[in-house]
């Protein structure tokens, strides 16, 4: 029987442990894929997913997410990134953010005065001006660290088209940030 996300949230509010099994059965494979894309290790990814389910259990309640799927994916992503940061393997070569910072002239490891929070505000503003599909491509690529192939299969768009869109998104972001006063 299908258990809706809403029902799973209710089960979590009722402290019904079966909610975790149902969530694991429904979203487990997806979570593991997301974790694997970031961590690059199946065993670590599995551990990450278990930790994410535990985090889900601890955070709902009080949290009542609008989308359980997005909320869980976000937890998996954050825990995966944390694991990588702690192990210091989330280096430039591992993360797609490397290609995003190419739009900055001094993209080496030099220290800078860029404010992450301000940049975040601008990125959200930039995304609001983008088409739906570009928003999704951006989030999949840079938030979830998906490969072009993964994005292609999730969105059913051919890989060359994804690459072109990513290139155009970066170009548009560059122009947007210049417009906001960045010296790029």
């Amino acid at each position: 029987m299908k258990i809706s996300d809403q029902r799973i949230i209710e089960m979590l509010f009722d402290r019904d442990e079966r909610a975790l099994t149902v969530t694991g059965n429904t979203y487990g494979a997806l979570c593991r894929r997301i974790a694997y894309k970031i961590i690059g290790d199946y065993d670590e990814a599995e551990e990450c997913v278990n930790n994410s389910l535990f985090e889900l259990w601890n955070s709902i309640p009080p949290a009542k997410p609008k989308s359980l799927k997005a909320y869980l994916c976000g937890i998996v992503r954050n825990i995966s990134v944390d694991i990588c940061r702690k192990r210091k393997v989330y280096e430039k070569t591992e993360s797609n953010i490397t290609e995003l910072i190419q739009i900055f002239p001094d993209c080496e490891n030099t220290e800078t005065s860029y404010d992450g929070k301000m940049l975040c505000t601008y990125i959200n503003e930039f995304l609001s001006e983008q088409k739906d599909v570009n928003q999704k491509i951006f989030v999949m690529r840079y938030y979830y660290n998906f490969s072009v192939n993964d994005i292609s299969s999730n969105l059913n768009i051919k890989e060359p088209a994804i690459k072109t869109r990513l290139f155009r998104i970066r170009e548009a972001l560059k122009l947007f940030l210049i417009d906001k006063g960045y010296d790029l």
Binding site: A70, C73, T112, D115, L119, C120, Y122, K136
Partner: peptide
């Protein structure tokens, strides 16, 4: 002081929930 990489990582961490829901 942060590297551009760190600043961008922080920015990406803060992507609005509505885009994450849409993508999910």
């Amino acid at each position: 002081m942060k590297t551009i990489y760190d600043a961008m990582t922080e920015a990406i961490d803060g992507i609005d929930e509505k885009y994450l829901i849409k993508t999910a």
